[in-house]
């Protein structure tokens, strides 16, 4: 059993027009190397699902700036003026969801469900007026469809050759739910161990969910500390 492959082999599974789920919340958990590979490959017309668009000129932002992204499904772009500007000029379509609802749409997709019902935003016209609603158990609720990606791109601290994944600290974020919710799941990892070396108690994403593991030879500077967030 060996799911380890090269970056090129793994990214060969991404096609123009795909819905690509990308883990990460800020720098932690963002698969920068996979994203740079996508940028290099020039696969376009992508729909990207990610918490945010990273900060200007980093990660997802580079794909959006290069015109490879047709649509972003996201929660907040507050730290990225470049993508906000492109959104305001109509250069990229953006669909916003409350953060936890986006997570649940993905979780539902991964769990083989078709949607969910929620009261979040029900009493705020901006959201509820644009949504399908239904009466259920005596109250009106927003209907949200489940999300399933063609591909998920994840970043994990550690993996074995079966694809069992372990994430570090706040780098978990959207990675575990996205791992369940795409047809092809690709994880870039900082450390690779043999099967049997991970304590089963410590596996965050079971290997059944993961199709390809790409071992990072080095971490580019994008994974490092961002100067402007230091005190």
């Amino acid at each position: 059993m060996n799911k380890v492959c090269s970056l090129e082999q793994a990214l060969g599974r991404v096609n123009p027009g795909d819905m690509v789920m990308v883990g990460g919340f800020g720098v932690p958990g963002t698969p920068f190397t996979l994203l740079d590979g996508l940028l290099k490959g020039g696969v376009n017309e992508l729909t990207v699902v990610k918490n945010e668009a990273n900060e200007d000129h980093m990660g997802i932002s580079k794909l959006v700036e290069a015109g490879l992204v047709r649509k972003m499904i996201t929660t907040h772009l507050g730290l990225n003026k470049t993508v906000i500007g492109m959104m305001n000029r109509g250069e990229v379509e953006v669909e916003f969801y409350p953060q936890g609802i986006l997570a649940e749409k993905i979780r539902a997709g991964g769990a083989g469900l078709f949607g969910l019902l929620t009261d979040i935003g029900m009493d705020t016209e901006l959201l509820s007026s644009t949504k399908q609603t239904m009466w259920f158990e005596g109250r009106e609720l927003i209907v949200e469809s489940a999300l399933k990606g063609d591909v998920a791109l994840l970043h994990a601290a550690k993996a074995d050759r079966f694809g069992n994944l372990v994430y570090a600290k706040s780098a978990k974020n959207f990675n575990p739910v996205m791992a369940t919710a795409a047809t092809t799941v690709i994880a870039e990892v900082e450390e690779l161990v043999e099967i049997g070396e991970l304590d089963p108690e410590h596996v965050h994403t079971p290997g059944a969910f993961v199709d390809h593991v790409v071992l990072l030879e080095e971490l580019s500077k994008e994974y490092g500390i961002l100067e402007h967030h230091i005190i």
Partner: peptide, 20 residues
């Protein structure tokens, strides 16, 4: 979270925190 036409970075987690 939003000033239509001026400031619209997305809702993030604010709506869920405010409501729940």
């Amino acid at each position: 979270w939003i000033i239509p036409g001026k400031y619209a970075p997305g809702i993030g987690g604010a709506m869920e925190v405010a409501q729940k």
